[in-house]
């Protein structure tokens, strides 16, 4: 089975994000990482590959030149090959899905496609489903447990508090990972060395057929939210402080 994993390169979770020109972010001093949920996707793809002899994992990332580093990391973790959809313009989720679908569809033997439940930059939480619809395959998101019995995929996904949906899907299908699905491995020294020798295949946006396609959703403006004024620490012994706190919550903040 040819297993795919779609990963996005995003700013590190610690990064301070500042707006530049109202529509983009200041990339100076930003450290780039693989979106955390996509790491769970990579791990699950690798685990599946280890169970199915003769299978291989291909990581796909759409993004500018720097996106190659995310793919290099996926290769170092154990992916066999990587495809970089070179794209320096802003694409909406629908067009991104079309471009990624083009790459995956070209492989007649694609099986399970792993993704993250959400990319932590646009926080759109929709690409996984749009991609699956584009490929006409079933999809489950927010997945906490994954099993493949050789015939069908069975997943559990978290819905409202504590409850889980059990979903069965034929292969090919798409699975979007949540935290808790697994613990992503670190790249080994050997993995890093091996990854250096693998050539990342580059695909242009024009080749995917998306090209200059119009977006269904356009970004108008980015801004920093207003910061809360700093609050206060209530002094005194625990009992007195707690008494005062409850008074404030009730009479000042009016939340009780």
């Amino acid at each position: 089975m040819n297993i795919y994993v779609c990963i996005k390169q995003v700013p590190d979770t610690e990064a301070t994000i500042l707006v530049k020109d109202g529509k983009s972010i200041n990339e100076a001093n930003v450290k780039w990482i693989i979106s955390p949920y996509d790491e769970y996707a990579i791990e699950e793809a690798l685990k599946l590959k280890e169970k199915l002899s003769g299978s291989k994992v291909t990581a796909v990332c759409l993004g500018p030149e720097r996106a190659q580093n995310a793919l290099r990391t996926a290769l170092a973790m154990g992916a066999d090959s990587a495809v970089h959809v070179d794209c320096a313009v802003v694409l909406d989720s629908a067009n991104t899905a079309k471009a990624l679908a083009h790459v995956i569809r070209a492989d007649k033997d694609f099986g399970v496609v792993f993704l993250g439940r959400q990319a932590i930059d646009d926080d759109a939480s929709q690409l996984h489903i749009l991609l699956a619809e584009e490929l006409s395959i079933p999809v489950a998101t927010n997945v906490l447990a994954f099993a493949f019995d050789g015939q069908k995929v069975r997943v559990e996904r978290e819905i409202d508090e504590g409850a889980r949906e059990v979903i069965e899907m034929a292969v090919p299908c798409a699975v979007a990972a949540a935290k808790g699905l697994n613990t992503p491995r670190y790249a080994s020294m050997m993995g890093i060395m091996k990854a250096k020798k693998i050539e990342i295949r580059k695909v242009t946006l024009a080749e995917t057929g998306v090209g200059e396609a119009a977006n269904l959703v356009s970004l108008l403006k980015l801004s920093s939210p207003a910061e809360k004024p700093q609050g206060r620490v209530i002094p005194g012994e625990p009992a007195a402080a707690v008494h005062e706190l409850v008074k404030l919550l009730r009479d000042e903040a009016k939340v009780l």
Binding site: D123, L216, L222
Partner: peptide, 28 residues
């Protein structure tokens, strides 16, 4: 994940970068 929706303009404000920024989008 909209925080505010303007149905006239088909625009919405939503948090991005985990809420470190706000983005205004329009649906075409």
């Amino acid at each position: 994940d909209c925080l505010a929706v303007d149905l006239e303009k088909r625009q919405a404000i939503k948090p991005v970068y985990s809420g470190k920024l706000l983005a205004e989008y329009r649906v075409e």
